[in-house]
């Protein structure tokens, strides 16, 4: 265990440098640069709000904020898992030539997604000010659901990155799954409009819990109870542990397949 920490400490700078690289390269040569991270969710929000409040007539108070909070968190999840799925394959030139802990790659992509998320939170703050939406003290708890989601994403990212080495099909499958997952999470519609059966199934969706938690502290001045917290923690930590074990059992074979 201590050896693991030692190696991690040694490669801490690799993690940091890779994240910096990704952030730098994402917006290099675009005029607005890093501002796109803020601008993008805002523009998306305008489009979705226009569609849903005028065409579908969804009845939610403060729909723009409702949508923005949900989609920001869900985007972090979809971005981190999507990036980390490809991470090992993309790092093949390195993995083939240098001996480095391979979990660095999915982990780095998750941290990169997290950094992007922090930028989109500026958009959320911006909207709060523009709409004059009340800010409750529970807002201080917002890191909690974010950390739950991040841990869950890292776990899933580890699994996906290892799988994608052996079966490239995963890449295509997952993009479909992710679309389905987006619609199966109450981001654009309220949870209440679902019928009882679907509501029950909905509770199996980890993202449902995280998004609800996120909105509870951000919009509804509610502190989720102990049960909710336990559910969230066990899903996150369970996925992470499974992901780590799965990744560890497969990593020595990566080099033969990439």
């Amino acid at each position: 265990m201590r050896a693991y920490f030692e190696t991690f400490k040694r490669y801490k700078y690799l993690l940091i440098n890779l994240i910096t690289k990704d952030v730098k390269l994402k917006y290099r040569r675009s005029v607005l640069g890093i501002f796109w991270s803020v601008l993008n969710p805002l523009l998306m929000m305008i489009v979705i709000s226009a569609v849903f409040s005028n065409i579908f007539r969804v009845n939610i108070d403060n729909f723009p904020i409702y949508y923005l909070t949900g989609s920001t968190l869900f985007n972090m999840f979809s971005e981190t898992t999507n990036y980390s799925m490809m991470s090992v394959l993309e790092a093949k030139s390195l993995i083939k030539k240098v001996h480095i802990p391979k979990y660095i790659f999915p982990l780095e992509k998750c941290m990169f997604g997290f950094v992007n998320f922090l930028f989109s939170m500026i958009a959320v703050a911006f909207m709060y000010i523009i709409f004059g939406y009340p800010i409750y003290w529970t807002i201080l708890l917002f890191p909690v659901p974010v950390i739950y989601t991040l841990i869950f994403s890292i776990g899933l990212g580890l699994i996906l990155s290892a799988l994608s080495v052996f079966f490239r099909d995963i890449v295509h499958l997952y993009s479909v799954l992710l679309t389905a997952w987006t619609y199966f999470t109450p981001i654009m519609y309220p949870y209440d409009i679902l019928n009882d059966k679907i509501k029950l199934i909905m509770h199996l969706n980890p993202m449902f819990h995280y998004v609800k938690y996120f909105r509870d502290v951000l919009m509804y001045k509610t502190i989720p109870n102990l049960e909710t917290n336990l559910i969230c923690i066990s899903i996150s930590v369970g996925t992470l542990i499974f992901g780590l074990l799965f990744f560890k059992s497969k990593q020595d074979k990566f080099i033969l397949y990439i």
Binding site: Y13, N17, L18, L25, I100
Partner: peptide, 24 residues
């Protein structure tokens, strides 16, 4: 190996160094 073509030499030196496990 592990050089990123879009990065400058300065940035690559740091990236490559950390690949080998050196601190910044």
């Amino acid at each position: 190996a592990g050089f990123d073509l879009d990065l400058t030499a300065r940035e690559n030196i740091f990236l490559n160094g950390s690949v080998l496990g050196f601190s910044n």
